[in-house]
């Protein structure tokens, strides 16, 4: 494996030698991964390589059988995705997990809606605060929408992706896992999502970007971690590798 110089900062997320077994199948055999603030790490590998097992362990869907996960240098063990989210690890799902009939603000605050008191007594949803937060959050993503009350179902795929990312951002997610965020999108929309990822990077967040699309990976990532059959096949700085080399790592040529 070629030496990959680590950025000087302490890693935001430090996954050390994690194992995962499902019955007789070893899904992950001692995989390590570091993610630094402001860094985009692509996670690549063929189907069944262990990408989604690794991300599910990081996001609290299930625990590791062995090894540890450190967040800001502290060992963490999440029993639920909720716990991971509270700690600042947010997953952007392929199907986005948005309520299409609600506004951007209502989606950002879904499950944690701010309330105010009408006439000093009656608790009511603070829609103005939600709309204001939506406007500010989305403008940080260079997403300018003129009708904040419109349900997100009216937006395009890339715009909805931006809403999901905006929600993660608003709640101060520092590690953002994105599972094939460009897979279901057309080319212009894919470009928007890559722009969003660069934006998160500029804000000093760490992004783990899972993709099959090497072009997207090379366009946006700093490093690439390739898994093969549950093990680390290789790790490269994007600036120092090629499509061919990554493909060879993936298929084990």
């Amino acid at each position: 494996m070629s030496a990959v110089p680590s950025p000087s900062s302490q890693p935001l997320l430090d996954v050390r030698g994690v194992y995962k077994r499902f019955g007789g199948v070893e899904a992950l055999k001692g995989v390590s991964l570091e993610l630094h603030p402001g860094e985009v790490v692509a996670l690549a590998g063929d189907n069944g390589a262990g990408k989604s097992t690794l991300t599910k362990m990081i996001s609290g869907v299930y625990p590791a059988d062995d090894g540890e996960i450190r967040l800001d240098g502290q060992a963490v063990r999440f029993s639920t995705p909720e716990a991971a989210r509270v700690a600042g690890i947010e997953t952007i799902y392929q199907d986005l997990a948005l309520a299409d009939n609600l506004s951007i603000g209502a989606n950002i605050f879904l499950g944690r809606e701010p309330m105010r008191r009408a006439f000093g007594v009656l608790p009511v949803l603070d829609r103005r605060a939600m709309a204001q937060a939506a406007k500010e959050t989305m403008s940080r993503l260079d997403f300018h929408v003129d009708r904040l009350e419109a349900p997100v179902g009216r937006f395009s795929g890339g715009q909805r992706q931006a809403v999901a990312i905006g929600r993660a951002m608003y709640w101060n997610a520092r590690v953002i896992l994105m599972d094939e965020p460009t897979a279901a999108l057309g080319v212009p929309e894919q470009r928007k999502v890559l722009t969003l990822i660069r934006n998160l990077k500029a804000q000093g967040r760490g992004v783990i970007f899972i993709s099959h699309n090497l072009q997207d990976i090379f366009a946006v990532s700093d490093r690439i971690v390739v898994l093969r059959r549950g093990s680390l096949a290789g790790e490269r700085l994007i600036a120092q590798t090629t499509h061919d080399e990554v493909v060879k790592l993936m298929i084990g040529g």
Partner: peptide, 11 residues
Amino acid sequence: ASEQAALRAGI
């Protein structure tokens, strides 16, 4: 709209 979305939002 989406039971999954609600669940993932912690509802």
